[in-house]
């Protein structure tokens, strides 16, 4: 290897592989798209038709397992729900508001109502991005106060240091957003308040 590759070319090779890998990791279907039509419309983005695949085709369920075909395909469930822009491509807030779903708040008793608190916290953002409005209402529809307070947020306006970097790394709002609740890519749902 020492003779074949100079440090510089080896360096370049590594970088190439690195970026190929990065592209793969960011959900880009390089191998698929290169093997298929080179002039396909979506080269780097996952086309709509590939969203919400059935379990046997989602890459993690084992198609060798017969039971995989008994599991519900996401599209069957989502067909009755309002659509969203990312994540499951379902707007879960609307689904709940419009009564399209009525998830239980109690393990066994379907009649227990959630303890909803309507309190908005506005977090000012430096630079061009609109301010962030954190709404307690939509959160307490789903969650208990103890899910956030005090482990993720001290319950006091402005007491928590929140940055976009920490959110992307899965802290603060990123404990849920980018994993189960709507993804980070939906900037305007959080950055929703115009500045004066």
């Amino acid at each position: 290897m020492n003779k074949l590759l100079t440090t510089a070319s080896f360096n370049k090779f590594c970088l190439l592989i690195f970026f190929l890998g990065l592209a793969l990791v960011s959900g880009v279907h390089i191998s698929d798209s290169l093997a298929a039509d080179p002039n396909a419309f979506n080269r780097l983005m996952k086309p709509k038709s590939e969203r919400n695949p059935p379990p046997a085709k989602d890459g993690i369920h084992d198609p060798q397992n017969e039971t995989t075909f008994v599991l519900q395909p996401p599209r069957e469930q989502f067909s009755t729900l309002p659509t969203g822009k990312s994540g499951n491509y379902v707007d879960w807030v609307k689904a709940l508001e419009e009564g399209k779903i009525s998830p239980r708040y109690d393990l066994t008793d379907p009649s227990v109502e959630p303890v909803v608190m309507d309190l908005n916290i506005v977090r000012e953002v430096k630079g061009s991005m609109p301010n962030v409005v954190y709404p307690h209402k939509q959160h307490t529809e789903w969650l208990d106060c103890s899910n956030c307070h005090p482990a993720i947020f001290i319950p006091q306006k402005g007491a928590n240091n929140i940055s976009m970097a920490s959110i992307i790394l899965g802290e603060k709002c990123g404990v849920c957003h980018g994993k189960v609740a709507f993804p980070i890519a939906d900037c305007r749902r959080c950055h929703s308040s115009k500045k004066e």
Binding site: L15, G21, L24, V25, G87, N88, V180
Partner: peptide, 26 residues
């Protein structure tokens, strides 16, 4: 060390390529 880092990142990326299709939140 830079090379070693790059190589290990490459290897890791090859072993765990994104299964970019699975349902969000699984």
């Amino acid at each position: 060390t830079f090379h070693k880092l790059l190589i290990s990142v490459c290897m890791a990326l090859m072993i765990f390529p994104s299964t970019g299709n699975a349902e969000y939140g699984d």
